[in-house]
C-alpha cells in the first residue's frame, strides 16, 4: 500500500500539493505511489525560481532506471524555490517523497484552482487503493 497523507491534495498525474506556512505558496512533489511505480530515480530536471507554468503544464522531467516521466504543475503559478538537494541525491524521492523528496515551491496564481485537485480519498480511488 502506498502512503497517502491526509493533509495533501493530488493530481491524476501523481503530483501532490502541500500547503506551506507562507500564504499562497505550496510545495509540490510526486506521490509515494508514483515513486514506487517509477522505481529508482536517477535524475530530476527542475526549473529555476521565477519560472511560470500553467495548470498541468510540464515543469520538469524525472528519469528513473526504467522510464522518463514529465512532471506536471498541479496549478498555475510561479516557482519560488526548488529543492537543490535532490540533484545530488535523487534517491531521496524514493525514500521520502513527501519530505526530503519535495521538488518545487510554487506561488499559486488562483488559489481556487486548488479546489479542483483530488482529495486523499479520491486519489486513493484513482490508484485503485
Amino acid at each position: 500500500m502506498s502512503k497517502i497523507p491526509d493533509d495533501l491534495v493530488f493530481t491524476e498525474e501523481h503530483e501532490y500539493v502541500q500547503q506551506t506556512d507562507q500564504p499562497g505558496v505550496v510545495t509540490v512533489g510526486i506521490t509515494d505511489y508514483a515513486q514506487g511505480e517509477l522505481g529508482d530515480v536517477v535524475y530530476v530536471d527542475l526549473p529555476k525560481p521565477g519560472a511560470k507554468f500553467g495548470k498541468m503544464e510540464p515543469f520538469g522531467t524525472i528519469e528513473a532506471v526504467k522510464a522518463v516521466s514529465e512532471l506536471f504543475c498541479p496549478v498555475a503559478g510561479e516557482i519560488v524555490e526548488v529543492n537543490d538537494g535532490i540533484e545530488g541525491d535523487p534517491s531521496v524521492i524514493n525514500k521520502d517523497p513527501y519530505g526530503g523528496g519535495w521538488m518545487i515551491r510554487l506561488r499559486v496564481k488562483n488559489p481556487k484552482d486548488l479546489d479542483e485537485l483530488l482529495s486523499p480519498k479520491d486519489y486513493a480511488a484513482h490508484i485503485g487503493q
Binding site: G39, V65, K66
Partner: peptide, 9 residues
Amino acid sequence: PVQYPGGIT
C-alpha cells in the same frame, strides 16, 4: 520480476 522492494540500484 523486474525488481524487488529494495529497488534496482
